[in-house]
Amino acid sequence: MTRLWPLPIFLAAIGAALAAEQPPRSGLDYATPGLRAMQADDFANPGMLWVAEGEALWDKKDGMGGTSCQSCHGALSSMAGIAYPRRDPRDPSRLMNLETRIEQCRVDRMGAPPFGYESRELLALTAAIRNQARGKQSSVVEDAAAIAEGERYYRMRRGAFDLSCAQCHEERAGKHLRDETISQGQSNGFPAYRLRWQGLGSLHRRFQVCNNAVGAEPSPLGSQEYIALEWYLAWRGRSLPVETPAVRQ
């Protein structure tokens, strides 16, 4: 539902947003030297184990047609320039991220069972594909409606603590919460290896952690609202280089 705001309130809101605007900073900027070193070395970054597995999965034949990702798409390196999330071409009201796109490809094109969101295989393949763009800015589909929907989620207060994403990751980014520095909550390193997870995890799993932390009911992995939020975050951090697989606390 949309409604028109009185002009002074609208202008005040714009002013507040501009005041809070900071240049995008990767979570890497807030990481300790130890974590940064771990991420920088491909043979010390445990996330690279998933990337290596994903590289192998790319070429692995599966499903009724006996095809692999490689059979249709060619070399994995050709994935460097892809832009996700995007709309489902067959149903433009439906948003797809890389994970749900891979699952759709497996079911519809390969005749193979889906891996399942947050499965080791789907994380591995997603990480391997995202890793192709490491060091480059990732392309973002400029879909104003989808980005606006994601931003709406980002700015909506929720949960027992009544906090929006923006209140921590925009208004208080760089400030301290116990022993941690609050980051801008950028998505450029996902799927990321988190020490707490002792493994690789998706951006949507990270969203669920945040939802739980403010006492809000998390949405399902791969849900439309999470994909919209993912889209907004990709747009918001579009000047940052891809770091997948990032290493974080």
Partner: peptide, 11 residues
């Protein structure tokens, strides 16, 4: 060992 900023369910 320090603890993280947010309580994480199930970590």
């Amino acid at each position: 060992i320090t603890s993280g900023a947010c309580i994480e369910l199930g970590e």
